[in-house]
Each structure stands twice: as C-alpha cells, then as structure tokens.
Amino acid sequence: MPNLIDFRRRIRSVKNTQQITRAMKFVAAARLRRAQERVLAARPFARQILRVLQSAESRLEEAVHPLLVVRPEEKLLVIVISADRGLCGAFNTNVLRKTMEFLRENKSKQIELVAVGKRARDAMRRTRLPLKAELIGATMNVKFSDAKELAEMAVAAYTSGEADAVYLVFNEFKNVIMQRLVVDRLLPLRPEVVTPEHAETGGGHTTAGAPRRAEVDYIYEQPPKQIFDRLIPRYVETEVYRALLESSAAEHAARMTAMDAATRNASDLIDSLTLHMNKVRQAAITKEIIEVVSGAASAG
C-alpha cells in the first residue's frame, strides 16, 4: 500500500510542474498579444505596396518581370517555417508532417530546403535532402531584415534558375485555438497579384480591393517599368515577412493552448491524488481505531 509520504511528494512535484506550465502560459499569452499587434502593424504596408504595384502595372503595356514567369517545375526550393522550441502542442509536428507530405508528392523533382526554426532544421536534416540555408532564432522575435534575407535568397535562386518555384510551408494564425497549415507558392508570383481584376490575392490579408485606376494620370519620376521592377522584389519580401509573423503568432497561440491544457491536467491530477491520499489516510486511522478498540475489548 502506498504510504502518505509518497502521495505528498507526488502532489508537490505535480504542483511544481503546474507552476511552470502556468507561467509558460502567461508568457505565451503576452508574446501572442505582441505578435498579433505586429501582424496588424505590418498590414498597412502590405496593402499599400500592393496598391502601388497594381497601379504601376496598369500603366504598363505588358507586365513582364522575371519573377512572374512560370516555368515547368523541376527544381523546387521549399522554405519550412517551424518554431525553435517545443512545448507548443502539435505546432511543429503538423508543419513538419505537411512538409513531408509535400516532399513525398514531389519526389520526382529536385528539391532543396530552407529551414526556419530549430525544429524544422533538425527534421529536414533527417530527410537527407540538401539544406540550402537555416535560420535559427528568428521566429521568437520576427525582424523584417530576416524576411528580407530569406526573400533575397529565394529571388536569387529563382532568377538564377537554381529553382523553378519557391514554396513556403508554415502555420497560419487563424485564431488562438486554431492554426491553419499553408503551402504557399512564393515564386513565381501569382499573376493575379499584380492584375487587380482579381481583387482576391489569395493572401487573404490584402483586402485592399483597389479599383483599377488606369485613368489616373500619374507623373512618374522614374519610368513605370523601373518602378514596377523594383516593387516586385519588395512585395516578395512582405510576403515572406507575413509568413514569418503569422507563424510566430500561431506558435505563441499553440504554446498558450498547450500550456493551458497542461495546467488543467495538473489540476486534475492533484485532485485525484489528494483524494487517494485522503482515502489512504482515513483507512490508516480506521485501522488504528479498530486496533485500539479490539485491544481494549480483549483486555476488558
């Protein structure tokens, strides 16, 4: 029979764990709030750049840009965005599983990988596919410069012909308890991005719905073509930045949910342990009383 000391010890240890999970939950909640603010803060720029891009495009006879040219996909560059740390539920597992699925579907193609986050890096190493680059420590505190670097690498790989298409695999923040897995083609850009007739740009965040304003007679300080050509890479950067921000918000949300569940489980465990402990204690007391009573009876 387990004794009281054992129970007390276990309860104490579970309580300690609970304290940690509760603290982690609050930290994740605070980080989530900040991450969400940054997703919002990044929106005006994304919206405006798209609008300017479309307005420049509407002035061109033909919008041709190397990043818009679709080639048969034989060589792929896949950018996987995960977290650096665990303890966030199925967050990492999900994105990695999705990636593996994607890799299996495209087995026949030549694939290169870019890993963002430690978890992605570790998993991608195991695939034995070439790992072009890794970015660690970027998901906790997303910086635009990181996104820019990634975007530049993607653009370079695409324009040099090293890759025929660049894909992003990441968790999109849907709400606190839900993440949506996204496999997004970053390059070549979807043509509807620059042609505003299709106001829906697939990104979901660009609800600008800018009316086609070819009628506006702009003064172009530089030729429209040049502005257009320079805007496109900027746009790719904002897309990567958005993916990083989304993934970061989703990570914090996932961690918060996971830690909340863990805290609740610890509570349940403490309750049931306390109940058992009391039963054992009661049994011990009862046994002692019986011993005393029967001892007195036999003596009398």
Binding site: V52, I219, Y220, E221, P224, R230
Partner: peptide, 17 residues
C-alpha cells in the same frame, strides 16, 4: 531617387522611388 521633391496640397498624382 533623383533629388528632393516638394509637395503642396493640390499636387498632381505622382509616383516616385
């Protein structure tokens, strides 16, 4: 990109790097 520009209210539509 090619020098400073001054913008007053009522300026014509303009796009510049």
């Amino acid at each position: 990109l090619d020098g400073y520009l001054g913008i007053l209210p009522g300026h014509a539509p303009l796009l510049t790097e």
